[in-house]
């Protein structure tokens, strides 16, 4: 996998509250681990989606191999799991999404569109 710009920023247990829960913007968080093959397949697609979203929505990753406590707190049962937050409230969740731009785009944008409508 070529090393390119990282449009998905890492968030840890220490920064989760400030970057995710306190954010007034829509936020999508991918719970993943680097040793997970499904996460590896999703990574380039997620990067593409995050780049396209730009400032419209922040996309973060939580490495559950490091932050197991966060995974437990948010009841993550498998990786990759995407959890969408709006104003610190969970508004949607996608478990094991297919690694396609369309599926992922829907997963990270639809919950916010439903709130807006």
């Amino acid at each position: 996998m070529p090393i390119a710009a990282d449009f998905v920023k890492s968030v840890t247990g220490e920064t989760f509250a400030a970057l995710v829960l306190a954010s007034s913007e829509p936020v999508a968080v991918e719970f993943m681990s680097y040793g997970c093959e499904h996460c590896r397949l999703l990574e380039p697609v997620l990067q593409e989606v995050a780049e396209t979203l730009g400032a419209r929505e922040a996309v973060f990753r939580v490495n559950i191999a490091v932050d197991q406590e966060l995974a437990d707190r948010y009841e993550i049962e498998g990786t990759p799991t995407l959890v969408m937050y709006s104003g610190g409230i969970e508004v949607g969740r996608a478990v094991g999404p297919n690694p396609s731009v369309k599926v992922l785009w829907n997963a990270v944008t639809r919950p916010f569109e439903e709130i807006a409508s």
Partner: peptide
């Protein structure tokens, strides 16, 4: 049937039944 940390389950989108404030 499933790895400890990993999943191959079918893609699904879920929405919490009620919006809940996360801890």
């Amino acid at each position: 049937f499933r790895g400890r940390n990993h999943t191959a389950i079918k893609s699904r989108l879920t929405k919490p039944p009620t919006l809940k404030r996360t801890r």
